[in-house]
């Protein structure tokens, strides 16, 4: 008889609620009260804006990354608490419930980890994650992150711009697109199931990938990425819906043709190749005009390109309704 005993894991550091979050855990209740007062006070006008926005959290312990510089690119908006950023995730390889990745991604092995860069380039190669970490000075960028489902967060991401990394592999003149692939290992991802065609794939036009806003994240809040957030390396594309920011990348390929992307294969009428945040183009089943910032009671308006107009020139002349 086979008796399977679940090992008793100790509490991981990522599971410990930072003190600030613990003290702020009743903010929803406070907001509920404020919201109720606001609603009552403005019965004939528009509802009051929720106050009591989350307080920025300390960047965690000192064992984190050495950061070269910090840039606030979210208009002084308070970052979403670490606890929420790391316990409300879409990472379907570890379950489709938002709380499941934090629960199950512990089985992901992020060392050793090799990134393969191939395709239409003059200097293809493989690079280990620890070498990748030393390649460029690490910087922190606070970006807004908008999910296609209608919620959003503000996150201090740590890493470096994607463009200079891609340039090292010398894409040739045939390279028009960049394809990215997530690790797929059923042994490490026993909860993957058959919801999506694995491995998870994403893609960008080369000029999108080279845009200074396109970022490769290796950490958040000054520490290495937790597994559920896409360790050990992921894209962060703040002007696109979250599913474009592919997690746990093992392969990058320069291509001539537009690569296939997972959500587009799965539901082409709902998820396009571009997936730029756009309040003017609704999802076929729900509105994209507003979003709920985690920690806020009411919804706020969604901004075109998620409030990053500097990318607009990438899409001049492109009908954003057709190429959604």
């Amino acid at each position: 008889m086979l008796i399977r005993l679940k090992p008793q894991y100790p509490i991981r550091p990522s599971e410990i609620t930072p003190e600030g979050v613990y003290h702020g855990r009743r903010r929803f209740l406070a907001q509920l009260g404020l919201g109720a007062i606001g609603l009552a006070a403005s019965a004939c006008g528009k509802a009051g804006a929720p106050s009591g926005a989350p307080q920025p959290q300390a960047a965690g312990d000192s064992a984190g990354f050495k950061l070269d510089k910090r840039t606030d690119m979210a208009g002084k908006e308070a970052p979403t608490p670490y606890e929420d950023v790391t316990h409300y995730n879409n990472y379907y390889e570890f379950g489709t419930d938002k709380s499941e990745p934090a629960e199950y991604a512990g089985t992901l092995r992020t060392r050793p980890w090799t990134l393969a860069v191939e395709g239409e380039c003059d200097a293809p190669g493989h690079i280990g994650i620890d070498d990748l970490l030393k390649l460029f000075p690490l910087e922190e960028r606070i970006y807004r992150h908008r999910c296609v489902e209608g919620w959003s967060i503000v996150v201090p991401w740590d890493g470096f711009a994607l463009g200079p990394l891609l340039a090292r592999f010398k894409p040739n003149s045939k390279a028009k697109y960049v394809a990215f692939t997530t690790l797929y290992d059923p042994k490490q991802m026993p909860h993957a199931g058959g919801v999506l065609p694995w491995p998870y794939r994403e893609g960008l036009r080369l000029d999108e990938a080279m845009h200074p806003l396109a970022f490769l994240s290796l950490g958040l809040y000054g520490k290495a990425l937790p597994n559920q957030n896409g360790a050990p390396l992921r894209l962060t594309l703040p002007w696109k819906y979250g599913f474009k920011s592919i997690k746990s990348i093992v392969r990058i390929e320069f291509t001539q043709q537009a690569p296939q992307t997972t959500w587009n294969i799965s539901a082409p009428d709902e998820y396009g190749f571009y997936a730029n945040v756009n309040p003017g183009v609704d999802h076929p089943r729900w509105s994209q005009k507003t979003e709920r910032r985690l920690g806020e009671l009411f919804k706020r308006p969604t901004l075109l390109f998620n409030g990053y107009p500097e990318v607009a020139s990438l899409y001049s002349g492109l009908d954003l309704r057709t190429y959604f």
């Binding site: 855990r25 009743r26 209740l29 509920l32 929420d84 709380s99 709920r292 920690g295 009671l297």
Partner: peptide, 13 residues
């Protein structure tokens, strides 16, 4: 859970 602040990251949801 509302009173004790254990509704998770997206309480309204």
């Amino acid at each position: 859970r509302t009173y004790s602040g254990h509704l998770g990251a997206n309480p309204v949801e």
